[in-house]
Nucleic acid binder design. Structure first.
Ligand SMILES: [Zn+2]
Ligand SMILES: [Zn+2]
Ligand SMILES: [Zn+2]
Ligand SMILES: [Zn+2]
Lengths: 129, 129
DNA sequence: GTTGACTCTATAGTGACTATAGACTTTAAA
DNA sequence: TTTAAAGTCTATAGTCACTATAGAGTCAAC
C-alpha cells in the first residue's frame, strides 16, 4: 500500500504521515523501486494509535513515551496511568482558566451598549486602563 | 525611559516589547544618540492596552483591529461589540470541547487499575483500537 | 509518447512569543 | 582613567503540530 491509500484509510493527510515518520512516531518502512513508501496493516495500527491519542490532545512527546512504555510489555503500567492523570489535570486547569476568561469578557461586554460612538465606548475605555 | 524600565513598569519582557513594535502594535519611538529606544507615558498606555487585551486572549490581529477602530473616534462602536461577542463565543466553544475531552479522558482512565502490567493495560489496549 | 495522477525531498509558514549570538553603549567601581 | 558590568541593539533560530508550497521524479492508461 502506498502513502495515498494509507492516508485515505486513516483520514490523515499525506504530509502528516510523513511528519510522524520524521518525528519517529511511525516506523520507517521499506520503499519500492521508485522510492515510494510501502505500508502494511502494521502501519495502519500505528497510525490509528497516534490518531486516537491526538484526538485526546495527547502531545507527540507523550505519544512517544506511550510507545516506549508499550514496548516493555512486562513492566507495570503505573506511568501510563500517571500520564493520563497528568493530562486530565491539565485539561481541567485549562477549563477553569477559560471559564474565568469568559467571566472577564462578559464583564467587559457589559461596559458598552449598542449604538454608541467609539470615543465614548466603555469597552475601549476599560481596555485602556 | 529606556526599554528596560518600560519592561519593568509593565511586566513585559524586553523581547516582547520589541516584538509588538515589529508587529505594528506599538508606535516606533525616537532613539537616543546610542540608538536606544526612548519611551514616554504614551508607550506605557499603549503597552498596557495590549497587555489587557492579551490577558483576555484577544489575538494580536484583533488588537490591531481595536487600535484601528479606536482611532476613528466618531464612528459607532458596533464592531467592537461584535469582536468581543465573537470572542466570547469562541471561548465558550473551546470550553465545551475541553469538557468533552475531559469526559473521554476519564473514560480512558477507568480502563486501567493500578498495578497491572503493560501488556494487559486497558488504557494502551483502548488506545490501540 | 504523452497526459495525468501520484509520490518524493526540501523548505517556508502559522501565532505569539522566547532565546540565543555577537556587537555596541552606558554606567559604576577600582 | 581604566575596566568591568549591565544594558541595549539587530538578526536569527526555536517552540508545537502541523500545512502548504516548489520542483523533480515515478507510474499507469490511452
Ligand atoms: Zn498531556
Ligand atoms: Zn462601545
Ligand atoms: Zn478572538
Ligand atoms: Zn494500565
Amino acid at each position: 500500500m502506498k502513502i495515498g491509500k494509507l492516508a485515505k484509510l486513516t483520514a490523515c493527510t499525506i504530509q502528516t504521515i510523513r511528519y510522524y515518520e520524521k518525528e519517529g512516531l511511525l516506523d520507517t518502512v521499506k520503499r519500492s523501486e521508485g522510492n515510494y513508501r510501502l505500508y502494511d496493516s502494521r502501519a495502519i495500527k500505528q497510525l490509528m494509535f497516534i490518531k486516537h491519542c491526538r484526538s485526546l490532545d495527547i502531545t507527540l512527546s507523550e505519544i512517544r513515551q506511550l510507545i516506549e512504555i508499550r514496548d516493555s510489555p512486562e513492566t507495570t503500567c503505573n506511568n501510563v496511568n500517571a500520564l493520563v492523570d497528568r493530562h486530565i489535570k491539565q485539561v481541567d486547569l485549562r477549563i477553569e482558566e477559560l471559564k474565568e476568561l469568559k467571566r472577564q469578557l462578559k464583564i467587559l461586554r457589559r461596559k458598552c451598549t449598542t449604538g454608541r460612538v467609539v470615543k465614548d465606548c466603555g469597552i475601549l475605555l476599560e481596555l485602556s486602563q
